[in-house]
Design a protein around this nucleic acid. Structure first.
Length: 497
RNA sequence: GGCCCUAUCGUCUAGCCUGGUCUAGGACGCGAGCUUUUCAAGCUUAAAACCCGGGUUCAAAUCCCGGUAGGGCCA
């Protein structure tokens, strides 16, 4: 058998910091990573970057996991399921970082810096005033060993800095092509507060290497951090991954998507009743398209059709109207049992759904007749409340179709009442047929224009719904049943008396 | 301030690599119409863009150069 080429396994990761709710931007990064892995038969790793002890909290880790799962994003290795390259939380890997930190220190590729905040600030100010790019001035870069030892022994506060070499860093980005930076402009970067407190740039590099990450797919905000990390990789003798920097998700004013201009937490969208299918479909189209005119995708289709080469370079504005459209689309397509199940919590929260008050079948009908009007699940209560309420509150003038007078409306309702009282079969089809026929009869008796069915149907529909817009009177009556329907008509007539 | 990235309808984008088929295609939204008791949904339809300036070429949205604008990162 022919010996297999050393084909490097595709391994990607999503590495969020649990310092707050999962951001939609982060969710999209996770999605792209997941799709890239699926498409290329690779592995997708979830790693929690919780080295910032001050700001990291377990509850955010839990939320990240929960929301990603909800979206339908699956990982092959992660803090919740373990894996070959664990642990997958940086806080559990401190001894690993310490080892590499010591190595850099021993090889004099990193050094202790004792500069105070004030010194750094003064230096920064001075450089700014001279119009020079601000960077660390290297004051502690060549301290005698004894001084360092003495300072350390005295417990003088310090950080560990990495020596940035003065050279050009070039790398090939899968999305942007060749990118070049001049590292000489950088200044020695702080990689750890101390041996047990590594900082972001350092921890990522170590973990990506140890977890054998082949492709680093992340947001564009990290593009300018890449040369630093490459230098670190070289200093540690690691292998460099392939980079792909995704375009940013933008506010309407084209700045980086941020809180003040709307919701940024995935959980917010979840709560409002956006469907994961819609969110996934929406997010993937922000910066990617298959090159065909197809725009509606399931996760499975995406896993097949996704290609990183077709990812856009420019940032994409988060356009909520498009999300709403897609969500409406998925709401309309959802099997009714599923959709009903999804709506129940919203109805309960609004105090509309009281256990045992309505049959499952009727509830499904309520959802069915409301779904075309729904952009998100949370809208169900406002759309269907009148089905559940005993008393409707509306102005009697709403009952009037065009320029009808009170007594005309009363006649109209009485007419409907008579028809509905006599109707033998109480189902949607028959109600519709009967009422259409009744409308024609009513109009000709009253001398109203033949085709204008509003004279009969509008007052009826308002009497049943109490709203200026609602499903048809047939649909409402069908669900309400004869007794409640007649009762509502009577109540309306009473208002006109 | 320095560095880097980006640039097609209001928005998401196709086309750009391999110049002509582009009077620039699709989708969301917006306008109109149909349908209709209402609002939706559905169907039909309109308006709407190649950032600017040079160059190369018979021919440029597409290639080259220079601006401009926006964004990101650094502190």
């Amino acid at each position: 058998m022919k010996k297999k080429e050393e084909i490097k396994k595709i391994r990607v990761r999503f590495a969020p910091s649990p310092t707050g709710p999962l951001h939609v931007g982060g969710s999209r990064t996770a999605l792209f990573n997941c799709l890239f892995a699926k498409k290329n038969n690779g592995k997708f790793v979830l790693r929690i970057e919780d080295t910032d002890v001050q700001r990291s909290e377990q509850k955010w880790t839990d939320e990240i996991i929960e929301e990603l799962k909800w979206l339908g994003i699956q990982w092959d290795e992660g803090p919740d399921i373990g894996g070959e390259f664990g642990p997958y939380k940086q806080s559990q890997r401190l001894d690993i970082y310490e080892k590499y930190l010591k190595k850099l220190l021993e090889e004099d590729k990193a050094y202790y810096c004792f500069c105070t905040e004030e010194e750094l600030e003064a230096n920064h100010q001075e450089q700014m005033s001279r119009g020079v790019a601000p960077k660390y001035d290297g004051k502690c870069a060549h301290l005698p060993k004894e001084t360092v030892q003495k300072n350390l022994a005295e417990g003088k506060s310090s950080v560990i800095r990495f020596r940035i070499q003065n050279k050009k860093i070039k790398f090939n980005d899968l999305i942007r092509g060749e990118v070049e930076f001049d590292a000489g402009l950088l200044g020695d970067v702080v990689i750890a507060k101390n041996l047990n407190a590594p900082l972001y740039h350092f921890a990522v590099v170590v973990d990506d290497f140890l977890m054998q990450i082949s492709h680093v797919i992340r947001g564009e905000e990290h593009l300018s951090n890449t040369p630093r990390q490459i230098l670190l990789i070289q200093a540690l003798g690691f292998e460099q991954p392939v980079y792909a920097h995704l375009p940013l998700m933008l506010n309407t004013d084209r700045s980086k998507l941020s809180k003040r201009q709307g919701d940024v937490a995935l959980a917010d969208y979840h709560e409002q009743g956006y469907l994961p299918e819609a969110l996934v479909n929406f997010m993937v189209l922000l910066g990617w398209n298959p090159g065909t005119e197809k725009e509606v995708f399931t996760m499975a289709q995406l896993a097949r059709e996704f290609s990183i080469e077709k990812v856009q370079k420019a940032g994409a504005v988060f356009n909520i109207q498009r999300l709403d459209f897609l969500n409406g689309l998925y709401i309309r397509e959802k099997p009714i049992e599923k959709l009903t199940e999804l709506c129940v919590p919203y109805l309960k929260e609004a105090g509309l759904l009281i256990a045992g008050q309505i049959s499952e079948a009727s509830l499904q009908k309520v959802i069915e007749v409301s779904r075309t009007r729904m952009k998100k699940l949370s809208e169900i209560s406002g759309l269907s409340d009148f089905f559940f309420q005993n008393k409707l509150g509306y102005d009697k003038d709403l009952l009037k179709w065009q320029k009808m007078s009170d007594s005309e409306v009363k006649d109209s309702l009485s007419f409907s009442k008579k028809i509905l009282s006599d109707t033998k079969k109480w189902d949607l089809k028959d109600l519709e047929t009967e009422l259409f026929a009744a409308s024609d009869k009513f109009n000709s008796e009253k001398g109203y224009p033949e085709k204008n069915r509003g004279y009969l149907l509008w007052p009826l529909r308002v009497a049943l719904s109490g709203k200026d817009s609602s499903p048809s009177p047939f649909e409402i009556a069908d669900i309400l049943g004869r007794e409640k329907t007649i009762k509502r008509i009577d109540e309306a007539i009473k208002m006109l008396a």
